[in-house]
Design a protein around this nucleic acid. Structure first.
Length: 487
RNA sequence: GCUCCCAUCGUCUAGCCCGGUCUAGGACAUCGCCUUUUCACGGCGGUAACAGGGGUUCGAAUCCCCUUGGGAGUACCA
């Protein structure tokens, strides 16, 4: 039987980093074993669900490069529909079957009654389970009558009093004691199913073979095990992946800052890098490498290499991973991504040859794609020089005025928009021989004169990229500063 | 409270299932050196961990128990 896995988000907000990781694991596993990856929308919480979020989450998955084989937008008639809100009849049908088999019952208890029941159980030291009268089959006729009269009611599942054992692919053998859960609601009085019930009905009907999801569902699983049993359905394999935590070691949530995928998308993180980093948070590559693409994993992703403990989400390493992917990218792809970036305005005005050279130089200084135009603005287009102490010191050197005067003269002869590397080399040679300057005063003096900086990239690469007009302005400013300082 | 899960450098982890090859390996971060007549990139190296206590065993990071710590669940949310 071929593998079928699913990612089942609730459209109650943006796609979360943790959700993306779960989706990714499912996707990778499907790819690794030639299975099918299904997207199911769990929108049974009417108050919080929103169709707009469904769209946004799917967009984010696409951006990450996580593509589903089946879903609301790619239905397979055998399994459709893929939105739980469109499957209500199905849930009702199975709920009726459970009632007929005596495995579930109508429950008319009010919220107040339920609370009183709980309080009483607590006071008497009993398990906090349902002990209402409707569990007793002798009230079934009364229940039927009230239903017939049009009354709305919840349907509660009769939890078997026995222990269950789950063989989880990540956690190993997990045994749930026989008093862990009491009777629980499967159909709410508003006609909508509850998670632990409809999840099982769908997984059964959609023939899901492997459930890969967050550890927060580990305790829920006992309820689901009961439903599988009651429905006489085949059990899938379960893999409960550890949770992502913030720097305070609490489950990762909004208050930890940037936890929505779209935030990273807006900040131009590379989707491959996001996937790479997310995969690493709880799973290890068999070759112990840290940098890889999704397709690298298609042949070797497995459920065997998950770690059992939670992982802290760390921006530092994500930044490094992003930088590694950036450095491996083709210049053409980087240039292409930059065309839509507003902060790359100055960069985008240049011609193709210039851009190619600039990217080769600048990507060594960048962790993020947006660092490239940022560095271009700082190192190439900036005409306002900050008179830092270090720069003032260089200006104070005996040899520096000579360099500035000489270079200003040479620059005035230039009629092209850019200086060539050969011209720059000739100037350096002249300064060395005819001006008799050498060592630090030579190189740092020229750098200061031309760029207004003490440090930066190799001048032979940087200066041919810098517009002559800008260099002239810097030279002017510098010689003015020098004169003021002297006078 | 109760139940379940987890525990290796600051962080992500390898090793654990099938005890000896572990004076515990890699990566991020950090520090130092080399390279670059600068900076960054890169290269090399350093600091840094088996939570604690009991067992079992000739031998335990690895198996068992307890303690401690952390997390999750305990809804007519998912």
């Amino acid at each position: 039987m071929s593998v079928r896995v699913r990612f089942a988000p609730s459209p109650t907000g943006y796609l979360h980093i943790g959700g993306a990781r779960t989706a990714l694991y499912n996707y990778l596993y499907a790819k690794a074993v030639g299975g099918t990856f299904i997207l199911r929308i769990e929108d049974t919480d009417l108050e919080r669900s929103n169709a707009e979020y469904e769209k946004l989450q799917i967009d984010d998955l696409k951006w990450l490069g996580i593509f589903h084989d089946e879903g609301p937008d790619k239905p397979n008639p055998k399994y459709a529909p893929y939105r739980q809100s469109e499957r209500l009849e199905i849930y009702n049908k199975y709920a009726q079957q459970l009632i007929e088999k005596g495995l579930a019952y109508y429950d008319f208890c009010t919220e107040a009654e339920l609370e009183a029941m709980k309080a009483q159980n607590e006071a008497e030291g009993n398990d906090p389970h349902y002990t209402g009268k409707w569990r007793n089959s002798e009230h079934f006729a009364e229940a039927k009558a009230r239903i017939a009269a049009g009354e709305k009611t919840a349907i509660r599942f009769k939890a078997p009093k026995k222990s269950y054992t789950l063989n989880d692919k990540v956690k190993g053998s997990v045994t749930y004691p026989d008093n862990m859960v009491g009777d629980f609601v499967i159909m709410r009085s508003n006609g909508l199913p509850t998670y632990n019930y409809c999840c099982v009905v769908d997984d059964m009907l959609m023939e899901i073979t492997h459930v890969i999801r967050g550890e927060d569902h580990l305790n829920n699983t006992v309820r689901q095990l009961m439903i599988y049993e009651a429905l006489n359905a085949k059990l899938p394999e379960f893999a409960h992946v550890s949770l992502l935590i913030g720097s305070d070691r609490q489950k990762l949530s909004k208050r930890h800052g940037a936890t929505s995928v779209n935030l990273y998308r807006n900040e131009n993180y590379l989707p491959e890098a996001m996937c790479n980093y997310l995969t690493l948070l709880g799973w290890s590559h068999p070759a112990e490498t840290d940098i890889f693409t999704k397709s690298d994993l298609f042949s070797l992703f497995s459920l065997e290499r998950f770690s059992a403990h939670s992982a802290m989400y760390d921006l530092e390493k994500l930044k490094w991973v992003n930088g590694q992917h950036l450095k491996k990218m083709e210049n053409a792809d980087i240039i292409n991504m930059l065309t839509t970036l507003p902060e790359a305005a100055a960069f985008n005005k240049q011609d193709a040859a210039w851009k190619n050279m600039a990217v080769t130089l600048l990507k060594q200084y960048a962790d993020f794609i947006s660092d490239i135009p940022k560095k271009a603005d700082e190192m190439i287009f900036d005409e306002h020089i900050e008179m830092k102490n270090e720069l003032l010191e260089i200006l104070g050197w005996e040899t520096t005025p000579k360099i500035i005067d000489y270079l200003a003269g040479e620059m005035n002869k230039i009629t092209t928009p850019f200086v060539t590397e050969a011209e720059l080399t000739a100037w350096m040679d002249f300064a060395k021989k005819d001006l008799a300057i050498k060592g630090k005063p030579l190189f740092q003096g020229i750098r200061a004169a031309l760029t207004g900086q003490e440090h930066g990239p190799d001048l032979k690469l940087l200066i041919p990229l810098t517009p002559v007009a800008i260099i002239k302005k810097r030279l002017n400013l510098l010689s003015k500063t020098k004169q003021e300082k002297d006078g």
